[in-house]
Simulated scan of single mutants.
Amino acid sequence: MMRQRKRKKTVFLSPERLVFKETDPKATLTVYNPYDGPVFYRVLSNVPERFIVSDPEGCLPSAYRVDIAVQYRLDEEEDANEKADNKFKIDLYSEGKVLLGSKIIFAEIQTSKREEDSFRPTRESSVPRPAASATTKHSPRRSDGTTSSPFIIIIGLFCVGILIWPDPGTSRYTSFIEISTSHRLLAAYVLGLITVAIFR
């Protein structure tokens, strides 16, 4: 009879991908043992010189787990392709050092490049710049239409009429209209605002 092939065991771990940041180049890999008996684990890497593993191998009793601290070695000389090709392989062994199962996970290196570093100086264009017109360069007044508003002109003339209106009793034609001192002060104030708006 042919010897029955032993079935491989599934490697249970968390997370499925290790993420390292330049500001915090550390991650935690958790390996579980949901099986009846103890198993031995071993953590391998395709670039072991880039990582520091706290417990690269050990024994895991039944229904236990182990948290493995993994630290990424910062190296500014590495290019983007080298940082993207990082893998870990977790092997499970029996007491007789028989391979029970394996699993490969990837490691992601997130760079913290500042936003202002992604901008570069622009080149000066050879297209001639448009010449500024004399009206826009030496305009003495604003072009918002304030000085030519008919409404403001009417209000200004009305305020002038209030200020030059005679006092009651000085003329028989003005006895039916009496303008108080407060009204004259208000008209003078409004007329001052209009004058400032026009000659500003």
Rank of each mutant, 00 (worst) to 15 (best):
T136C: 02
S175V: 07
P140C: 01
D167E: 12
I177S: 06
I177P: 00
F151N: 02
L157D: 00
P140N: 00
S175G: 10
R142P: 04
G169Q: 06
F151D: 06
T147D: 06
I153Y: 03
L193I: 14
D144T: 08
I152M: 09
P168N: 08
I162A: 04
P168S: 11
C159N: 09
P140D: 00
P150K: 08
T136Y: 00
S139N: 12
P166M: 10
L163Y: 03
L157Y: 00
A188D: 05
P150A: 11
A187M: 03
S180Q: 13
H138A: 11
S139K: 03
D167S: 10
P140A: 01
I155K: 03
T174C: 13
K137S: 07
V160I: 07
S143G: 11
E178Q: 13
D167T: 05
E178C: 08
S148K: 09
P168I: 12
A187E: 03
T181I: 07
P150G: 07
I179H: 06
P150Y: 02
L193Y: 12
P166H: 08
A187V: 04
S180E: 13
D167A: 10
S175W: 04
A187L: 02
T136I: 04
E178G: 10
F176V: 12
V190W: 01
E178S: 14
D144G: 02
S182Q: 15
S175T: 10
G192K: 10
I179S: 10
G161S: 14
I179E: 09
G169C: 09
P150E: 12
C159L: 01
G145Q: 04
H138D: 06
A188Y: 07
T147E: 05
P166Y: 07
G169I: 03
A187N: 03
T136M: 02
L191Q: 12
G192E: 05
G161C: 12
F151L: 11
L186C: 12
F158L: 14
L163F: 05
R172P: 07
S171W: 08
D144W: 04
G145V: 07
R172I: 12
R141L: 07
